[in-house]
Amino acid sequence: MAKLTTRYVDSLAAGDKESISWDDELAGFGLRSYPSGRKVYIVQYKLHGRTRRKTLGRHGVVTADEARKGAKLVQADVARGMDPSAERKARLRSPTIKQLGERFLKEHVSLHCKPTTLYDYRNLLRGVVNPVLGGIKVSEITFSDIQAFHLKRRDTPYQANRGVMVLSKMLNLAEDWGLRAMNTNPTRRIKRYPEEEKKRYLDETEQERLGEVLAEMFKSGQISRYVFVAFYLLLLTGCRLSEIQKLKWDFVTKTHLELPDSKTGRRRIPLPREARALIDTLERREGNPYVILGDHGTGHYNDMQKPWRKIRARAGLEDVRVHDLRHTYASVAVMNGVDPFMLKEILGHKNLSTTLRYAHLSDDAVQKAAGQIANRLAATLGSMA
């Protein structure tokens, strides 16, 4: 045994077999020599009754003094109950964020979420998260990594925030699955960007224009009766697009749409007389359970966005999305005094806070009514000068 110094290690000749030279000053610090001439610094320690060794670096890449300092740090970690060798192996075995995402979709989302959520999460991971963070190991991703990702996407705040949201869910599960230490989720202190909520409602003039265009395009054969009825049902019921697009005859009663499953679970949607009358004009196709049919096949009408683009262009409503028809239904309800609690049930909102986004519309109605009352009183009272 001798003190391991750079000069001493340089002087050691390669033997016929692999060997270890131990330092005579720092117990557990050694040098492993190979017949090829390669020399590697190591540290040996005992934890829970088991002897382990950890490589500190190759001679020539690190000096003897640097390796000695590294050995002391390892021994300090061991004294605190840590196992540096096991932690390194765990890091090497750690999946990447991309691999965690695949497991997250397969073992969590597909089992506990709606198919639409699975679709959205898969696209979010593929198009937003993985290109930036996909290659980083789950055990090594840090707050700085997440922060840089969020900052890079600042021009698309909705995507940036949803990316952090799905990462938060994934990394919480990574802790549950033993892939990260508990309570180390680095997404927790990321401040979300403000999002400008898209609210677009059709006023009465726009509603009339849309009705005229739907009728014209139906009469001229540019849209089928099924498409015509589908858009009217969206306006008359406040349903989500998927709820009408995938509506089956078994769900239709005289007064309600009885949906066994929706975005918020089972729903019982009031079916006004006008909406029921439109449904009654539709022909059924033998062997096809759906109400809104395509031109052929056994399924439902697949792409409602395609005819909608033509309809809104003809009506001069290029900025209106299909989902804005649901917003229009809600706005008409609120402006006509429908109670928010009742509207929540009609629209199938999970939380009242979602329904209360439309509350400002009732304020407008109240303001208008107050103005009419004041005008009438002022006319009766005469000049106030």
Rank of each mutant, 00 (worst) to 15 (best):
R32M: 04
T63S: 13
A67E: 02
Y45R: 05
R53I: 02
A64D: 14
R50W: 05
R38M: 08
K39L: 13
E66F: 03
L26C: 08
R50Y: 10
L73Y: 08
H59F: 14
E66W: 02
Q75S: 13
A27R: 14
G30R: 04
Q75D: 05
R68P: 01
E66H: 09
A67K: 00
A27T: 10
Y41G: 05
G15L: 06
A71D: 08
R38K: 14
L31E: 08
K54S: 09
V78P: 06
G15E: 11
K39D: 14
R50G: 10
K54N: 13
T51R: 15
R32G: 10
H48D: 15
G30Q: 00
G70T: 07
V62Q: 08
Y34E: 11
R52T: 03
L73H: 06
A14Q: 11
G30T: 00
S36T: 09
T55I: 10
D65R: 14
A64T: 00
K54P: 03
K46I: 09
G70H: 03
Y34M: 14
R50T: 15
V74E: 12
T51F: 11
G49P: 01
K46R: 15
E18H: 12
D77K: 15
G28P: 01
E25Y: 07
L26W: 04
H59D: 07
V61Q: 10
L73Q: 09
Q44P: 04
V61H: 05
L31F: 04
A27I: 05
V62G: 05
L26A: 04
D16Y: 01
K69Y: 03
G30M: 01
D77G: 07
Q75H: 10
R32Q: 05
Y34N: 12
G37W: 09
G15Y: 02
R52C: 06
K46D: 10
G37F: 12
V74T: 12
Y45G: 02
G30Y: 01
A14M: 10
T51S: 15
D24V: 00
P35R: 13
S21R: 14
G70M: 12
G60C: 13
E66V: 03
R68W: 02
V43S: 08
F29I: 01
G28E: 07
G60A: 12
D16M: 07
R32W: 00
R53M: 08
G57I: 01
R68K: 14
R53S: 12
V74G: 10
T51Q: 15
S21K: 15
E18W: 01
H59G: 08
Y41T: 07
D65M: 12
F29E: 00
G60L: 13
G70R: 10
R38W: 03
L73C: 06
G49D: 07
G70Y: 10
H48W: 04
V40I: 01
